[in-house]
């Protein structure tokens, strides 16, 4: 596999909650239009790292970032960065589907309306395209006025993905997007990810190792750095390599279920 171009370059990233360092010296290149999975035991900083990629951690008081995160070669932590625009370009899908208690249409329309991205006919087109891309259009096209909370959990999660797509991001961050879903709904999301990577760069945190193995192109194995309470990437590479012949004994122990 030829090395695809880098979308996000992370250089010596550290993250502190007050005096506690949660991430230590993370450096990886996240490939454009590929799926990168972050795996590792609980508390190793996977979600913290994911949230560093669109500055979601800014909302937590008393935190501090060192190092660089270059999105298309621009450091997103440089002074003067437009964080709203950053989060439009780097969207996020969460663990539990979190649609607004509104209609399906209004959920997807929310982002474009707030950001003033599309009006009227254009808006409808955006919504149709987003629902298509999230593989939900066929199931909801006749009921766009229906309350989003009446959908199944799997449909709600695809609706959240459609809502993220409607603001035309370049990167989608997924924080355990399937942990609340049943196996069929999970496989649907995984299939959808394969479709979405034609256009988008995807970074996914997952506790489900088989999901990382099935769905991702690259895998970053995270763990607490030796002798610390701070997470770091101990091994990063093609998913096939990580799951057939990892370099690091700790990766081997984790993916074969012998950790802890």
């Amino acid at each position: 596999m030829a090395q695809p171009p880098t979308k996000i370059q992370v250089e010596h990233l550290y993250f502190d909650y007050g005096s506690k360092t949660a991430l230590t010296d993370v450096s990886i290149d996240i490939a454009r239009q590929r799926i990168t999975a972050l795996i590792g035991p609980s508390g190793c900083g996977k979600s913290t790292f994911l949230r560093c990629l669109n500055r979601m951690n800014d909302t937590i008081p008393n935190t501090h970032v060192r190092g660089k995160v270059l999105l298309d070669e621009q450091n997103i932590y440089a002074p003067g960065t437009n964080v709203v625009e950053l989060r439009r370009r780097v969207a996020m899908v969460f663990q539990r589907p979190n649609p607004f208690p509104q209609s399906i249409f209004d959920n997807v329309a929310f982002g474009p309306r707030v950001l003033g991205l599309a009006k009227n006919a254009n808006l409808f087109q955006t919504i149709e395209e987003s629902l298509h891309s999230a593989d939900l259009w066929g199931e909801v096209k006749d009921n766009l006025k229906q309350d989003a909370l009446t959908l199944s959990l799997g449909q709600q999660q695809r609706l959240c993905i459609a809502r993220a797509l409607a603001i035309r991001p370049a990167v989608i961050l997924m924080d355990e997007p399937c942990s609340a879903l049943d196996p069929i709904a999970t496989l649907k999301i995984e299939e959808l990810m394969q479709e979405l990577k034609q256009e988008y760069t995807i970074v996914i945190v997952t506790h489900n190792m088989q999901q990382a193995a099935r769905a991702s192109d690259y895998t970053a194995m995270m763990m607490l750095a030796a002798g610390t309470r701070s997470g770091t990437v101990i091994e990063f590479g093609e998913t096939k390599k990580i799951f057939t012949n990892p370099r690091d004994k700790r990766t081997e122990d984790y993916i074969t279920g012998r950790y802890g």
Binding site: M209, Q210, A213, F243, T244, N245, T251, E252, I255, T256
Partner: peptide
């Protein structure tokens, strides 16, 4: 058991 890595080999 979904073996991986060395177990799979």
């Amino acid at each position: 058991q979904q073996p991986t890595a060395r177990d799979l080999r």
